[in-house]
Amino acid sequence: MEARTPQAVPGEANKYRLQKARNKSVDILYSVFRYMLVIGISFIIIYPLLMKFSTAFKDKIDIYNPTIYMVPVHFTLDNLKLAMEILDYFPLLGNTMLFVVVTTLLTAASCALAGYGFARFNFPGSNVLFALVILTILVPTGTLLVPMYLHFRSFDVLGLVSLFTGKEGVNLLNTYWPSIITSATAMGLKAGLFIYIFRQFFKGMPKEIEEAALIDGAGGIKTFLRIMLPNAIPPMITVILFCFVWQYNDTIYTSLFMSETALMPINIASLPAQANALIPVLTGVGTGTNVKADPNHVALIIDTGILLAIIPLIILYLIVQRYFVESVERSGIIG
């Protein structure tokens, strides 16, 4: 058994070298092309964000200077101050954060429970019920808006309230209860998708772990809390992140159930009207119906307000973005 050594014929060697050089140049060309693509697409994505940053620090004088592109000449924090004042920013942010965190945690908890139940237990009708979970994903939210609205307008579980108080039910509109109730019962925003993610993950975990826990004397609930949940970090992160972001950005449910409460999406949507009304007052130009704010200035303030609204999300994203990609890859969403 002799190892075959390449017979170096001069012509062959040249050909080989030529091919190697060609391969290398193709590789370089390809990577340049790839960088162009990646940078181009990235630019399209972050361009609006850059514009908002630029307008947020731009002085009013700079609006009318056509030579300015992106980097303002007169830096100022006035826009930020004004937008914060109009939005009542920090109380608003605190309120929104509390609301979003509570609903996110409730959704994650209820969806994890349901996902585990569907993944590991065989009870009569479990497959039919899981098909119904998929159905909740597929039915558009618009279909349920009217009945949900009327339902929360006079909220009553099995007629219990009217039994005890004699009234027709409690009006829960413009409180946080509708969202809290929907998230605690895994019926909130895209909750079906979260149940699906948890189920796929728990299905992929080895059964032996649970059997060992069972033999060691742990009950079903203890097994779930002590063994399964600590292992379910990837889907947990995925669900919490998505739920947080979607809840923070949601306008449908918030404007339907809580149109008068201080939540970020509602206030941002009404910011243009607010800015028009309040800017003349706040800048001391005067009051009255005849005084109108400079539309360019209003647009500046609106952009700043939008930036203020998305800044918390961007900061959050910068902290967790590494886990974001990894956890989705490991959460078994693709299994």
């Binding site: 697409i41 990235s42 994505i45 972050i46 964000l49 998505f242 972001v245 923070y248 950005n249 306008t251 449908i252 970020m264 999406p265 509602i266 941002i268 949507a269 910011l271 243009p272 009207a273 028009n276 539309p295 360019n296 209003v298 647009a299 609106i302 952009d303 307000g305 939008i306 609204a309 998305i310 999300l313 961007i314 994203y317 973005q321 974001f324 990609v325």
Partner: peptide
């Protein structure tokens, strides 16, 4: 950067943006 749009997709922001432009 590619996943940033997931974070920033908001109807409220979109409507405020177009309202700002209409105002302008």
């Amino acid at each position: 950067i590619f996943f940033l749009p997931v974070i920033l997709a908001s109807n409220a922001i979109a409507s405020a943006e177009s309202a700002g432009l209409i105002n302008l």
